[in-house]
Design a protein around this nucleic acid. Structure first.
Lengths: 320, 320
DNA sequence: CTGTTAGCGCATTCAG
DNA sequence: CTGAATGCGCTAACAG
């Protein structure tokens, strides 16, 4: 038997020895069936290939592993990863789900809520009070970004390359950015606004478009780092110096951002802490000590000054 | 009932309707128990944060998803991810395992073989005929690399920054590289040899060390792209121009390598094809139509010429 | 302190 | 053609 106080030590040892000799291993499936818990949680990620996610997934994995849970990956490629994850939740293959890249979309939220199962949103969320979520202060981060560009460096022609409007992250960062501008009585020049999915390609494409304008922007605020790196790439490879002629500001602080040959100035999300909080919330829900409903956990963001943001040429010594 | 030919259509429809009304979902755990198959496979990855792995995992996920399997992630962090994976294999939580980052180490191989369970090695392998494996032609790739540097560009002082000697990839690439040099009657200058784990940091550190030498190398062959990018980073940020003063050659062709501001010259592994082959082999083994034992599937590598390899200064116009 | 039994939710028998 | 019974491998709640 296993771990029962009532049994003689001698017997226990005999049994353990026998088990080892036969290399007996309890069948996890049968255990799951009877315990009504698989100790597996699903993480749904839209694209693990986006460098933001590996570090998030790694943190989540570490946290969950520490509490005896394993991670199943629901990665988006063509197929609807959310529907898939949902199916596996209702079939009880997974004990809970952590969504890392939710889109704002309602029929889905209702389906999910109907299951009444353990679920948590990290990073992105859907604006529904029924669910737990842990996010960074994206609005605040956007405002920091605007303040940096405007007050500290004196940029005037500022462009933004935003993420998809269906992503809460994109929306909130943009809101914070625009909010700050309005607060000081300025507004974003809509002709310098561009958006697209959170990919390097939208950074490249939008930046090229912006650089081909008659009057170029002197700074670009990007919806996330991968867009920013795309923009940086487009700028550098078309010969415009960063930050000499163009400042670039990202969001997330993915590992590549800190490479010294790149040095992307960006707004950091505390990914590890967020992952930890998310794991704790989800495990609470799974193990029943769950609070009521819809807790929100917001983490502060932090401006990371590196080298891709500088003075606009107008303010530099020796500029015309 | 579900999918039985013997039942009247009318009855079937009634049942289906009822099931939908009650939103009945079969319990996956119970199904697994009775079918003796969970339709989950584990992938063990040493570090998902290394940009090579997300694309491999993504490909694997796509392939396995297409055959109805889900992926559980065994990522290495501190804990021994292999032992963990092995436990879950013997407890039948997963139907099989794909190892993407095996180290050459034998007690482990025997344990694994003793289970006699479906297992495949991709990318790296342990040299044991009992297991299936799918790998790139790393020896050939190493030789290509050497030929490029020596014959096509005329480099003479060539350094190598290799990966850990316990990784088959590092060992094979290095073997191919050295082999080519010997074939043409040259040898690697051992004072220009450096190695470490497959991380950006070893690239940075080793490159700094190499650049601080009195006589610098004119080219570096790196064990993989992330090392190469570390080396590139170290070079650029300490003011040595690439490829002007130093050529850098990587291995893998990870996505970042092709960013136009970087343009890393490298040896490509056909990751998607390899993932596909691995998934097919593993599924065959799981579903019983398994061949005898120990198949090996080798994929050719391809030299990708970009911008980090050039002529050594000695051979350039205008050089002293 | 032990050995026995029931049943987790299904699929696959086997009788009806 | 269909309902009822058996057991997958385990744990928990029983009697012995």
């Amino acid at each position: 038997l296993s771990g029962d106080q009532r049994v003689k030590d001698e017997t226990r040892l005999r049994v353990i020895a026998a088990a080892k000799k036969l290399s007996y291993t309890p069948n996890a499936t049968a255990q799951s069936l009877i315990r009504r818990r698989s100790n597996i949680v699903g993480v749904v990620v839209s694209d693990i290939t986006n460098p933001f996610y590996p570090v998030l997934v790694e943190s989540l994995d570490r946290m969950f592993a520490g509490s005896g849970y394993r991670l199943i990956l629901f990665n988006g490629h063509g197929t609807d990863e959310r529907a898939d994850a949902l199916r596996h939740l209702s079939s009880r293959l997974v004990d809970g789900l952590v969504f890392t890249s939710a889109l704002l979309d309602y029929p889905f939220a209702d389906e999910l809520a109907a299951l009444n199962a353990p679920v948590v949103f990290v990073n992105r969320y859907i604006d529904d009070p029924r669910f737990d979520r842990v996010v960074a202060d994206n609005v605040g981060g956007g405002a920091h970004a605007a303040r940096l560009l405007v007050e500290q460096f004196g940029h005037e022609r500022i462009a933004v390359i935003s993420g998809p409007s269906t992503a809460s992250t994109a929306r909130d960062r943009e809101r914070g950015f625009r909010g700050f501008l309005e607060e000081i009585g300025r507004a974003l020049d809509e002709s310098l606004y561009c958006s697209g999915p959170f990919t390097r390609d939208t950074g490249v494409t939008c930046c090229q478009k912006l650089l081909s304008r008659e009057e170029r922007p002197s700074a670009i605020f990007c919806g996330n780092d991968i867009i920013a790196l795309g923009a940086w790439d487009a700028a550098v490879s078309s010969g415009v110096s960063v930050p000499g002629e163009l400042s670039i500001l990202g969001f997330d602080d993915i590992p590549i951002a800190s490479w010294s040959a790149i040095g992307l100035t960006t707004v950091r999300q505390p990914v590890a802490s967020m992952a930890q909080a998310a794991a704790e919330m989800l495990i609470e829900r799974i193990e029943g000590s769950a609070a009521s409903s819809g807790r929100t956990n917001v983490f502060p963001t932090e401006l990371i000054l590196r080298r891709t943001v500088g003075l606009p040429s107008r303010l530099r010594v020796g500029a015309s």
